[in-house]
């Protein structure tokens, strides 16, 4: 089966006052149709830039400097601007933390959805509205016909995010990239949306990249997980592998610091130090100054160690029985 999304060696740099920084560094992963890939990492690790880079939305002073992004086998990076624009929205769509990045505040939900439908597909406005209504239904919006007449600000935050997801679904894209899409929502509303996203992947076969800082969310939603640190994917595998048997010291450290996995009141194991600035990365492995397993060898670039599809970028990965 060809992957719906195949990212190979994606590298994105920014020109800053402190010189070049590599925000996304040789990132590779693939997502099969109907699967959800959780892209997880702490703030500044490069998750959003990865999402934007996939969609070709990096502007100066940034630049995607290397790599390929294949959607249904077509390399987006080889397309003309015109063709790329056609792919966006039709084959690949993005959902942001703030739904107002997608929604136009001065247009009714139905009008803007109908416009979005007709950009890529010639059909009558009533047909487009009908198509929009169905999309709202898919994401669990009650009385969708009425919501079509509403302005975005007349909806709650959770409803607005559902509308943004419905917009992303309009053209049945092969790939959906969601960046912290439920982070700003309440847990009960987040729970509803996660359940719907799971069903969406299962029923429509869309491949979903779910970007979040929240390990609990990826652990219960995703089929596969990529862990990012300082612009690199340091561990990649199925959710069971990465959560149940992490091999990278950083993944292990992250999981260890989650209170839910410890007896209440006990001191939490903590990763010393803080996330590094990209302009001041140590040579070799970027995690070295904080890593309990670091040796002199870690001053050199860590190799990719692959075992049973679980890949880690590390000189001394944890051994699992």
């Amino acid at each position: 089966m060809t992957a719906a999304l195949d990212v190979k060696g994606l590298t994105t740099r920014f020109e800053t006052r402190a010189g070049h920084v590599t925000a996304v560094n040789d990132v590779s992963f693939a997502v099969q149709p109907g699967r959800i890939m959780g892209l997880v990492g702490e703030s500044g690790s490069g998750k959003s830039v990865t999402g934007f880079s996939i969609l070709g939305l990096i502007d100066a002073p940034g630049e995607v400097s290397a790599g390929a992004v294949l959607i249904d086998g077509i390399d987006l990076r080889q397309l003309s601007d015109e063709d790329l624009r056609k792919m966006r929205g039709r084959k690949v769509a993005m959902v942001f933390q703030d739904p107002m990045m997608t929604l136009n505040p001065v247009l009714r939900v139905g009008d803007q959805m109908a416009m979005a439908v007709r950009v890529h597909r010639p059909m009558s406005k009533p047909d487009a509205l009908d198509h929009a209504r169905k999309a709202l239904e898919v994401v669990g919006i009650p009385s969708p016909a009425e919501r079509l007449k509403a302005y975005p600000h007349q909806l709650s935050g959770g409803m607005r995010q559902r509308v943004a997801i419905a917009m992303a679904l309009l053209h049945s894209p092969s790939v959906i990239i969601a960046d912290e899409a439920t982070t700003a929502l309440d847990v009960s509303i987040q729970g509803q949306i996660l359940a719907e996203v799971r069903e969406l992947a299962d029923t429509t076969g869309a491949a979903i990249v779910w970007i979040t800082h929240d390990l609990a969310v990826v652990s219960s939603l995703a089929d596969d997980i990529c862990v990012m640190y300082a612009g690199r994917i340091v561990e990649r595998g199925t959710a069971e592998q990465v959560i149940g048997g992490p091999r990278h010291p950083y993944t292990q450290g992250l999981l260890d610091s989650i209170p839910a996995l410890h007896e209440p009141g006990r001191k939490l194991p903590q990763i010393p130090g803080s996330t590094p600035q990209l302009s001041r990365l140590p040579e070799g492995c970027p995690f070295r100054p904080r890593c309990p397993r670091a040796t002199d060898l870690c001053r050199t670039e860590p190799p990719l160690d692959v075992r049973d599809e679980q890949a880690v970028l590390c000189h001394h990965p944890l051994e699992r029985a």
């Binding site: 009960s188 729970g191 509803q192 609990a216 652990s219 995703a222 959710a239 999981l255 839910a260």
Partner: peptide
Amino acid sequence: ASIPTVGTGRGRFEAIKGEI
């Protein structure tokens, strides 16, 4: 029941219905 937790496995959301 509606809160995702690490390690419970995937797809177990019993979301609270309705809005606040």
